[in-house]
């Protein structure tokens, strides 16, 4: 049982390390939604954002190839789950100025009460949503 915690912990430490390095070298917070929005809305001094996003895709590819780890099983949910989920996630993170990385990892790391409240809120509504979809509207 203990074994199942190792890879999440190692992954979490890598995410923390990356966030610290980005702040130490570039002075930027590794909030993915903010980086994405900055990249597509053509902010000045933008090349670092695009390169970070390229790395975000190359990193997993290298991990799976070099360690011969299989890709996760594709989601059994429908395409419209992806559509609705994506729309809500995008709208919510822009309105709330951050996601799991910006508020959860970096904001809490920076002792921001605002980010702590945001993190508790999206964790709670995520849990409630899964409860409703899996246990109230079974199979939706």
């Amino acid at each position: 049982m203990l074994y199942s915690y190792t890879t999440p912990l190692i992954g979490g430490l890598l995410i923390g390390l990356s966030s610290v390095a980005l702040l130490y070298f570039l002075g930027r917070m590794a909030g993915i939604s903010s980086i994405v929005w900055g990249a597509i809305s053509a902010q000045p001094d933008n090349s670092w954002r695009w390169l970070f996003l390229v790395g975000l895709v190359i990193g997993p590819l290298l991990y799976h190839q070099l360690t011969a780890t299989a890709y996760p099983t594709a989601s059994p949910l429908q395409w419209w789950h992806a559509l609705i989920g994506g729309l809500l996630v995008g709208f919510g993170v822009k309105l709330g100025s951050g996601c799991t990385s910006g508020h959860g990892v970096c904001g809490i790391g920076n002792l921001s009460p605002r980010s702590l409240i945001a993190t508790i809120t999206f964790m709670a509504t995520g849990i409630i949503t899964v409860y409703v979809m899996r246990h109230l509207l079974e199979g939706m």
């Binding site: 989601s75 809500l88 996630v89 309105l95 709330g96 990385s101 409240i117």
Partner: peptide
């Protein structure tokens, strides 16, 4: 803004299982 944004984001996360970073990586 913060609370409604976080609320909506969490619902979307629960609907499909991706937040922004993992979605891009995937």
């Amino acid at each position: 803004r913060l609370l409604s944004g976080a609320t909506i984001f969490g619902i979307g996360w629960g609907v499909y299982g991706y937040c922004p970073g993992p979605a891009l990586s995937a």
